[in-house]
Every structure is written in structure tokens, then in C-alpha cells.
């Protein structure tokens, strides 16, 4: 008799539990599949989905999507308040517009221009690019920093080679973005000099020429803007640079975010 009761009890428990776990598993599948997708198949599906969403998204006038690409500066490394450009810019934009600001950050520390190209060519960011209203790029800092370890004699040659490669790479980056999205505003952050130690005239000449070449490329695009950071950091390194003597600190990031916000301010309501 006791066994019979136990038997029905087990069946009863198993039934409850079955309903519970199957609906849970179904939900789990629904929430993860196609969204955590890193393999190509689900990636394709996702891109397809977001392309379908694309029209809807851009039509949604209450949303502005920002995409941040590039190196550690785009990522916000060094900011002790851990806001980076994202956090600061979001706060500033919130005061400017009633629209929803959606920020996607795909920056990776230590990225060089050819790594950025590689990242783009993996196509995983395509849907983000095509949905973005603003694309903020910071790249090249890690490339030019290599120059400091090259010896003085060959520096000039290597630099000009590097610079040529960078110009070509940057052009490819811009044309890649334009292939996916003709309308987004591209914001390119210029380079700054983080420490006074490397403040030699030669180094400054390199930095200037590098920034100039970047600006030339950016200015070729009618919906792109080059934002210099060289000037705001020049006399403010003590205040704006974090203890690692390379990345901006929270004040530095605030300043950069402020510049970006001012540059795109009047395009927000469009």
C-alpha cells in the first residue's frame, strides 16, 4: 500500500517537474538561440533579422544608435569611473535630446588599424553598422606608438611606410562602413600626445603629420568629422591623463565626450 502511494507520488512529482522543465527549456532556447549566436549560421540569421529590423529601426524617430569602434580609447580604458566615452557621451546626449540613446561598444584594447579591418571583415558588426546613426572611431594610436621603439635612423622611412598603410587602411574602413550604411555620421578621434617625456620636435612632427593624413581621409567623406584631441591634451596632460601615462582619465574622457557631443549636437533631432 505504501508502495502504491509512493508510486503515485513519484508520477505526480515527475509530471509537475516535467511541465516546469520543458517550459523552462523552451524559454531558455528562445532567449539564447539566434542572439548569442557566434557561429556563422545563426549569425547569418541574425544579420538577416536585423536587416529586416533595419527599416523599422531607422524609421523609429525616437531612437539614436551609436556604435563605437577602435582601440582602448574607444573602449574607455584608464577611466577610473569606468564610464569611458560611452558613459559620458550618453549622459551628455540625454540632456540634449529626448530620444533614446542606444550605445554599442565594439572597441578592443590594443587594436591597430589592420586589426580593425580584420574585425570589420569578419562581418559580425555589419548589422550594427547598418543600424547606427553615429559611428565613433578611435584608431591609430597603437600604430604610431610603435614608432617610439624604432631607432632614430630608420624611423623616418618606417614612419612614412606605416603612415601610407594607415591612410590606405582608414580609407578601407570608411568605404566598408559606407557600403553598409550611407547615412550614418562618422566621428573620428584624432590622436594626442599623452606624456611630456616624448615631447621632442621630431615626435611632434610625426604626430602632426599622422593627424593631418587622417583628417584628409576623413574630410573626403561628406558625412564624417575629424575631432582633434591634440589641442585639449597639450597643456592638460597632468589633469587629463590617467596614471598609466597613456590613456585619458575620467576628466579626459569627459572632455572627449564633450567634444563629440558638441560636434553632433545639431544633427540629433534630424
Amino acid at each position: 500500500m505504501a508502495k502504491k502511494i509512493l508510486w503515485y507520488l513519484i508520477i505526480f512529482i515527475a509530471c509537475i517537474s516535467l511541465i516546469f522543465v520543458t517550459s523552462g527549456f523552451y524559454k531558455a532556447l528562445k532567449s539564447t538561440i539566434g542572439s548569442s549566436g557566434d557561429n556563422n549560421k545563426s549569425m547569418d540569421q541574425k544579420t538577416a533579422v536585423s536587416h529586416a529590423d533595419n527599416a523599422k529601426l531607422t524609421k523609429d524617430p525616437n531612437k539614436k544608435r551609436l556604435l563605437i569602434l577602435g582601440d582602448s580609447i574607444a573602449n574607455g580604458t584608464g577611466d577610473e569611473s569606468s564610464k569611458g566615452i560611452d558613459g559620458n557621451l550618453k549622459e551628455l546626449l540625454k540632456n540634449q535630446t529626448s530620444k533614446d540613446i542606444v550605445l554599442d561598444n565594439a572597441a578592443i584594447d590594443g587594436l591597430k588599424y589592420n586589426d580593425l579591418l580584420k574585425q570589420l571583415n569578419e562581418k559580425k558588426l555589419d548589422s550594427y553598422i547598418s543600424n547606427a546613426d553615429y559611428i565613433i572611431i578611435s584608431i591609430g594610436g597603437n600604430d604610431i606608438r610603435e614608432m617610439l621603439t624604432v631607432d632614430e635612423l630608420s624611423r623616418e622611412d618606417i614612419f612614412s611606410q606605416k603612415q601610407e598603410g594607415f591612410v590606405k587602411g582608414l580609407k578601407e574602413v570608411i568605404s566598408y562602413i559606407r557600403k553598409n550604411n550611407q547615412n550614418s555620421m562618422i566621428v573620428f578621434l584624432g590622436l594626442y600626445n599623452p606624456t611630456k617625456d616624448d615631447d621632442t620636435p621630431d615626435n611632434m612632427k610625426m604626430l602632426k603629420s599622422w593627424n593631418n593624413s587622417a583628417q584628409t581621409v576623413i574630410d573626403d567623406d561628406s558625412r564624417a568629422v575629424f575631432i582633434p584631441t591634440y589641442d585639449i591634451f597639450k597643456f592638460n596632460t597632468d589633469k587629463f591623463i590617467s596614471p598609466d601615462r597613456l590613456h585619458p582619465n575620467s576628466f579626459g574622457y569627459q572632455a572627449i565626450a564633450y567634444l563629440i557631443e558638441k560636434a553632433i549636437e545639431s544633427t540629433l533631432e534630424k
Partner: peptide, 12 residues
Amino acid sequence: GFKVIGGQLVTS
């Protein structure tokens, strides 16, 4: 629904 793209977390 956290999602990783290129080693980065995408929160949207």
C-alpha cells in the same frame, strides 16, 4: 540575452 561579438559584450 547577453551577446558577445568580437570579444565584446553587446548590451543592446
